[in-house]
Design a binder for these strands. Sequence first.
RNA 1: GCUCCGAUAGUGUAGUCCGGCCAAUCAUCUCGGCCUCUCGAGCCGAGGACCGGGGUUCAAAUCCCCGUCGGAGCACCA
Length: 483
Amino acid sequence: MDPSFFEGEREERELPDLPGDTSSAVLRFAPNPSGPLHLGHARAAVLNDHYAERYGGELFLRFEDTDPSRVDPKAYELIEGDLAWLGVEPDKTVFQSDRIEVYHEYAEKLVEVEGAYVCTCPEEEFHELRNAAEECPCRPLPVDKNRERFERMFDDYGEGEAAVRVRTDVEHPDPALRDFPAMRISEAPHPRVDARVYPLMNLSVAVDDHLLGVTHVIRGKDHLANTRRQLFIYEHLGWEPPEYVHHGHLHVGGVVLSTSEIRTRIDDGQYGGWDDIELGTLRAIGRRGIRPKAVRETVLSHGLSENDAEFSWKNLYAANRKLVDDGSDRYFFVPGPATLRVEGPGFEATPPLHPDHPERGTREIEVSEDPVLVVPSGDADDLSVGDRLRLKDLYNLEVTSTDPLRANYVGNDLSILKDGVPILQWLPADSPETRVLKPDGDDSGALEPAAADLKVGDIVQFERYGFCRLDEVSPPVFCYAHA
RNA sequence: GCUCCGAUAGUGUAGUCCGGCCAAUCAUCUCGGCCUCUCGAGCCGAGGACCGGGGUUCAAAUCCCCGUCGGAGCACCA
């Protein structure tokens, strides 16, 4: 039986049902195409995908690219790639930039039903009035006048000179909900469309969610106020709103998540790209050998809870370790190699490729008589003259000198382990070199020759070191995942 | 300043809607033990939490109030 079957079952059982009618659920993931996805996005993406799958419903990918100044044309494909990696397969992809006229149409409708008006107040003046719970001079204007002003937005008014506002309640206790804007003019060029009158998110989102038949909206709780704003639009237009669920934020420590900040640092050369292993982008995480399923499980383990959560790398690593342990062959990697001269007989070590799977065979490491070996300098530093140690899968030694480090062969009896002697990984001194890229500082060292057959993307476990993914073949470079 | 949300072990989470079966779940984590060969896996054991104060009640993690702390919004961004 496939163990993932049970994991899938458990996933389903642990998450609560969505509110409302879920018999034909339609969900959506709606990113702004400004860059690739990171851990923070993964929560909404996976949650929506999970429920769409669970209810046999549909999932839309909707690019919310209605702010021309915040669109990176490359981001569309980056995001689609990230979703594919995550195993999120949208049934349909929608570009809001293709639908500008649709939003114009509904903005006009809002004006017609007096659910919105065109406001020409300077921004600051409007804000002052709003904060004072007073209506602006444009608000009481008749529909005729608004219709005319609406037309003028397309050919007369310039950027910042007019905006469509949704009529809510100027005395609403929450100032954030008082007559919010729904459409504006922007002269910035858009990579996909030729326009200058753009909807603001609350208009385009409400219109699309309704038109596309979205039944459940799962999004971050930073949209709590937007949900309430969108509800006003539903009411003005006489639409039935979807069910909303807001999840808390994921605080991801130790990495930079901000797309704009990453972008400038890439331009500075501080990061090698969107997949720089120091980053919290999905591409960076995948590059390190974290499986998408580990991300999914970890993200799903946070549930739908509205409280913010501290993202735990340890939990991610633990989930990934379970996923990759069985399939990862073992090899020796000696970081910071310290030379160890041995007096002893020649030998051929044959450690198993995987201790739990002897059937996979062994690696072979030839050791000459009186060999020159390397061991991790961190371990070498702990050694004193007279100490005994075990070179894993090779033989036992007794230290005769620490500077330089020398040791004599003292047999091959495994019972030495009963005495608690240290077990070290080791390699012939002439082994190939490799580098392991780690977020907190790279390691260089000796690589077991048998690892030469690995392909890019293979995940291995370097014994006593950790799980790593082969990133480049020659010269070999690995990325560190976790212990 | 105004408004909204949240608060269970180091971390995440279940339970909270419909109070009792919760001296509180599961995972991770930490510590110890086992294991003739990893600081991995596995097995065994241990540790660790209902933010504080009032109230309602026979009974409160669960309901109410106040407070504290944390987060978010008050953009012609999403």
